[in-house]
Simulated scan of single mutants.
Amino acid sequence: MHTLPSQPGVRVSLAELIDIRHRLREVQLFSTPSRRSPLIGLHRSKLRGRGIDFDQVRVYQPGDDVRTIDWRVTARTQEPHTKLFHEERERPVYLLVEQSRPLFFGSGVQLKSVLAAQAAALFGWAALTHNDRIGGLVFGDGEHHEVRPRRSKQSLLQLLNRLVGANHALHADMQAPQGTFGPALRRAREVLRPGSLLVVICDERALTDAAEQQLALLGRHIDLILLPISDPLDHALPAAGLLRFGEQQAVLELDTYDSDLRRAYRELGEARRLRWQHAAQRMRALLLPLSSQTDMFEQLREYLEQPAADSRR
């Protein structure tokens, strides 16, 4: 287990990620027998019956999906009846979590890398509590750390420990990674069977053409939850005068008083946001973008409070 010192908002510790399990009541991510998660209503499964089991038949009610009508019962009773389903138990839940240098940045309450680790821990504990099998892949700057899905607390702890190790290995002088998201998605395609749930937690800037193609292939057979991580400075530049950025021997200067420059920068950020939104709509994936500006639990509670028919997702 990693015991490296943590810096709140800059580094995560294993103890911090373990403690997140005590806050599961704040956000109901998965349905339970006594409570249905509002997030499930935001998620439209592409394949009828994928990831769910038959529960019972009841009288058809306005708003029910006509594709679930039980025609045999309807013919026998001369009254429309529809099938009800409940979520499949012990499905594999796979966390694909990025820990790379582009995430080692933040102007809000935490670095993006810390937010990604917290989100992975939250979904991991929620899945384990839901009796699902949990595993995942931590990917980033040259190294991948994989844990195969098992319904085991030790499996999740192993994944979180590797996540902490990758988080503590990040530093500002690292060389930027080249195309690590696509290979991580290809690995997920190799290990996940139909009906699995893939939770993708990555930098908002990671969605390239190749990565989007891999996501689309995954979305044909498994459920997807997408959590692109961003920072306020990814979307807008402040009018702060001349800003200088350096990377090894390269130096970039930007005059942020230039309104045309700030507008072009905002447009690039908006284009990334819209790309994720359009991709999620095509794949019928659940999109939960997170910002380092605000506490993760506050953001997820806002999603939970939105109507189930929110067309933005």
Rank of each mutant, 00 (worst) to 15 (best):
64 D>E: 06
3 T>L: 14
20 I>C: 09
181 F>Y: 12
172 A>M: 13
45 S>N: 10
237 L>F: 07
297 F>V: 10
237 L>T: 02
16 E>A: 08
265 Y>S: 02
92 P>H: 15
296 M>L: 15
72 R>F: 13
265 Y>T: 00
204 E>H: 13
41 G>N: 08
137 L>S: 03
273 R>Q: 11
115 L>R: 05
272 R>E: 07
177 P>R: 02
153 K>E: 11
2 H>E: 15
196 S>I: 09
75 A>E: 14
235 H>Y: 12
96 L>P: 00
281 Q>C: 04
58 R>C: 06
188 A>T: 07
206 A>I: 03
242 L>K: 12
83 K>E: 07
4 L>A: 15
47 L>H: 15
22 H>M: 12
64 D>T: 09
49 G>D: 06
237 L>P: 00
205 R>H: 13
154 Q>I: 10
91 R>E: 00
8 P>G: 05
269 G>D: 03
12 V>W: 02
165 G>C: 12
263 R>W: 13
223 D>A: 11
100 S>E: 01
185 L>D: 00
106 G>K: 03
126 A>I: 03
124 G>C: 05
112 K>P: 00
40 I>Y: 11
143 E>R: 13
144 H>E: 14
200 V>F: 05
292 S>V: 07
157 L>Q: 04
244 R>K: 15
163 L>W: 03
281 Q>F: 06
228 P>D: 02
26 E>Y: 06
200 V>E: 01
270 E>L: 12
197 L>E: 00
90 E>I: 12
186 R>F: 05
212 E>Y: 09
310 D>S: 11
197 L>A: 03
89 R>W: 09
266 R>E: 15
302 E>Q: 15
50 R>C: 08
199 V>L: 08
147 V>G: 01
237 L>K: 02
28 Q>T: 15
167 N>I: 02
143 E>T: 11
287 L>P: 04
130 H>F: 14
179 G>H: 11
138 V>I: 14
279 A>V: 07
42 L>N: 07
62 P>R: 08
131 N>G: 09
60 Y>A: 05
53 D>H: 11
91 R>F: 09
190 E>N: 11
240 A>R: 11
188 A>D: 02
155 S>D: 05
243 L>P: 00
138 V>P: 01
184 A>Q: 05
58 R>N: 10
71 W>Y: 13
20 I>T: 04
247 E>A: 13
88 E>S: 13
130 H>V: 12
67 R>W: 06
14 L>D: 01
199 V>C: 03
148 R>P: 04
172 A>G: 05
33 P>K: 12
7 Q>A: 05
95 L>T: 02
256 T>Q: 04
177 P>Q: 04
114 V>K: 09
154 Q>E: 14
15 A>K: 12
189 R>N: 13
239 A>H: 08
294 T>R: 14
276 W>K: 00
183 P>W: 06
209 D>W: 06
161 N>Y: 04
80 P>V: 10
195 G>E: 07
96 L>D: 01
23 R>G: 04
216 A>N: 06
264 A>I: 06
102 P>C: 02
17 L>H: 01
129 T>E: 15
186 R>D: 10
212 E>H: 11
53 D>L: 07
138 V>M: 08
114 V>R: 04
44 R>L: 14
171 H>D: 09
111 L>T: 15
24 L>E: 01
89 R>M: 14
174 M>I: 03
144 H>V: 10
287 L>F: 08
